[in-house]
Every structure is written in structure tokens, then in C-alpha cells.
């Protein structure tokens, strides 16, 4: 880091009526620009749906299946989709996301919301590669991961995630 961003050498004459200083406007402007960029990047990533890597060719590893783990957690996979949410007990955006997903599960047929504590289920969160809370794994009917999202999810994002599992209307799904 450059320290001459704030040159200490420029001692302005101190008048008796107050301290006369060269205000560091460039430093503040740079700082505000940096803050705005970080804020926009962060907000853009919130709840954004990501497909597992691989896909077309290359790694192409089979998606991890979570059906057995759902059973172990005492929850059956949804006939259409399961939102497997990794949360921390003290994380505020986790609570918000849980409300959104619980509401969606209550209203959309075949959709299940399962919330897992990353502190007590370290093995599961490690296997899922969950670094941030909340992270939501979107699973298909077989319990395979279709997509995931980190950060607080809006109701619109949750709905879009559901569409990612069943892009075309399935016979089991009804149009709301």
C-alpha cells in the first residue's frame, strides 16, 4: 500500500483563527468509489443462482446427491424440488432467507425447504463446500444439486431457482 496518498510533509501554516489544512478530497473520493464498487458487486451476488461447474465438458463430475442425507435429517426430498439451506444460528440473512423459502415451500406443490445448521453439521457443510451462510442448494426430485445461491434470497430469486429445476411445466406441477 502506498503511504504517500496522505502526504504528511505538507504542513500548512496554522493560523490563530483555526487550522488551515489541505483537505484530502482525492483520498475521500477514491474511498467512496471503492465503497460503491464493493457494495454493487456484493449486492449483485446476493442470492444469485449459480450452476455447478463442469456442465458441458471437462470435469463433468456427477452432481452430488443429497437424498440419503435428507433422509438422515428426517426430511424427504420434494417431488419437484428441495431447497437445502445451510445456515448459522446467529446469521440475520439466514433468517430472512428461511422465511422466503418456507413461504415458497408452503405455497408451491412438491417443494420442500430443509434448513441445516453449519455449526452442528460440519461434515455436510464441508461436503457441500459451503463457505458463506446462508448457502442454498437447489435439489431436483432425485436429490441432485441443480444450482446453488449464497447470500440472502429474495422471493423472486427463490421462484427463479425453482424454475431452474423444472424449466418446463411438469405434469406434477400446477400453474399458480
Amino acid at each position: 500500500m502506498q503511504t504517500d496518498m496522505f502526504p504528511p510533509g505538507e504542513h500548512q501554516p496554522v493560523s490563530t483563527r483555526g487550522v488551515q489544512m489541505s483537505a484530502q478530497w482525492p483520498a475521500l473520493v477514491a474511498l467512496v468509489v471503492l465503497t460503491v464498487v464493493v457494495a454493487l458487486v456484493w449486492r449483485r451476488g446476493q442470492g444469485r443462482l449459480r450452476r455447478p461447474d463442469g456442465g458441458s465438458s471437462g470435469r463433468g463430475a456427477a452432481p452430488d446427491r443429497w437424498a440419503a442425507d435428507l433422509d438422515a435429517l428426517g426430511a424427504a426430498a420434494g417431488a419437484r424440488a428441495t431447497f437445502l439451506q445451510f445456515s448459522a444460528p446467529v446469521c440475520a440473512p439466514c433468517r430472512a432467507t428461511a422465511r422466503v423459502l418456507a413461504a415458497l415451500a408452503a405455497e408451491a406443490p412438491g417443494v420442500v425447504h430443509v434448513e441445516v445448521d453449519v455449526e452442528t453439521h460440519l461434515d455436510l457443510s464441508l461436503r457441500a463446500g459451503v463457505l458463506r451462510t446462508p448457502t442454498v442448494l437447489v435439489l431436483d426430485a432425485a436429490g441432485a444439486e441443480v444450482a446453488r445461491a449464497s447470500g440472502a434470497m429474495t422471493p423472486a430469486q427463490a421462484r427463479a431457482a425453482l424454475d431452474a429445476v423444472t424449466p418446463i411445466d411438469q405434469p406434477s406441477g400446477r400453474n399458480a
Binding site: A39, A88, V90, L122
Partner: peptide, 29 residues
């Protein structure tokens, strides 16, 4: 400190809170 405070005030990203959540998890691990 300005960067952290301004992010919290404007978009609700609380960096210290995120650290706390991660720290709890690491301690548990």
C-alpha cells in the same frame, strides 16, 4: 473503518457480523 461502516449503512453488509459467524463456525470445527 469507513469502508466497513458505509457498506453496513448503505447495503446492509456487516463485515464484522460475517466475521463473527465464520469465527463461531471455525471454533466449533
Amino acid at each position: 473503518a469507513f469502508l466497513a461502516a458505509a457498506l453496513n449503512a448503505t447495503v446492509g453488509l456487516c463485515l464484522g457480523c460475517e466475521l463473527y459467524v465464520i469465527g463461531r463456525r471455525l471454533r466449533r470445527a
